[in-house]
Design a protein around this nucleic acid. Structure first.
Lengths: 164, 164
DNA sequence: CTTCCTGCAAACCTTTTGCATGCCT
DNA sequence: AGGCATGCAAAAGGTTTGCAGGAAG
């Protein structure tokens, strides 16, 4: 999923950043997956070891205020923490598999159409959309129960019970 | 939005309930708006004064496990708490106005179509869908900034800043 | 000189859990 | 007896805030 360059976007708004915030933002930008605040802190510290939790949260707050990132729950698959990603050029949403923990990104013109409808038929000005789907992915549906879990380390099926 | 009768659904599953749980469930069922756990506790206590927080959470957990309620974030308009509602017969989602705090329920055949697509094109078995839209409602868009806030007590615009 | 940023620690809020007790079958 | 439900209090987990010191304009 192609995402917007955060640093450029910020620069174009005339906002100046400190070294710490740049480290946080760069870590977020280059992440291949959706990061939660704790992981983001960890990665930012690889660039700038004395960054504090608070700075991460304050930077995320700034990015939210500028409308440059999305905040996700990912169906609370692993608790109440939030995940962040740079806004993508095209809208997309996430399918979360309760069995294997996989998160799949999904784009659909029907989704775009739905947003269109909300705007035009309801007069609602959309600023943020969060669509998250939980269930069982194709792979897990076809396989005997639990055979997914040990196959790959990239997914962490923390909670099989649905939280929403 | 027409919602399923929780007590009937539960009975039909052969689950027996205690008086406390019935009080919680009845309070949830009759609520006109989406309740968070604290408010639900408050209302349940009007029926049965010595109900504890833990009982409310444990009852909600049961209802989730039975697939009878939906858990919402409502765009974190008022913090991290969750809101609950009996599942409705037809799928619906919520438009949250960051300005006046109004929550509008929305149904759309395009939404149904989108779910259809996810299932058929992606082989994903949907168990839970959460679609939440944040922005500015028609009324607020037309009015000068902030003139909504004092007009009505039914909406509580705790956070104008978007959290997602 | 003023403003904003920072780390640190403490506070906050919602949700979860351990435990001893009690109810119901 | 056995199993589940309950209240209470404490813990957990993520996020926010007060504060004093610093850097930058």
């Amino acid at each position: 999923m192609e995402r917007k360059r955060l640093d450029e976007q910020i620069a174009s708004k005339g906002v100046r950043l400190t070294a710490q915030r740049r480290a946080v933002i760069a870590s977020l930008q280059e992440a291949d997956v959706h990061l939660d605040a704790a992981t983001l802190l960890e990665r930012a510290r690889q660039r700038n070891p004395n960054i504090d939790r608070a700075t991460v949260y304050r930077t995320l707050e700034l990015l939210k205020k500028l409308g440059l990132i999305d905040e996700l729950d990912l169906m609370h698959l692993e608790g109440e923490k939030h995940y962040f990603e740079a806004k993508s050029v095209r809208g997309h949403f996430h399918l979360a598999c309760f069995t294997c923990g996989a998160i799949v990104e999904y784009t659909s013109s029907t989704f775009e159409q739905l947003k269109q409808e909300i705007t035009s038929e309801h007069g609602f000005e959309i600023q943020v959309v969060r669509l998250e789907v939980g269930g069982q992915c194709e792979k897990c549906r076809r396989l005997p129960r639990d055979s997914q879990l040990s196959e790959s380390g990239e997914h962490t099926p923390r909670a099989v019970s649905q939280k929403a």
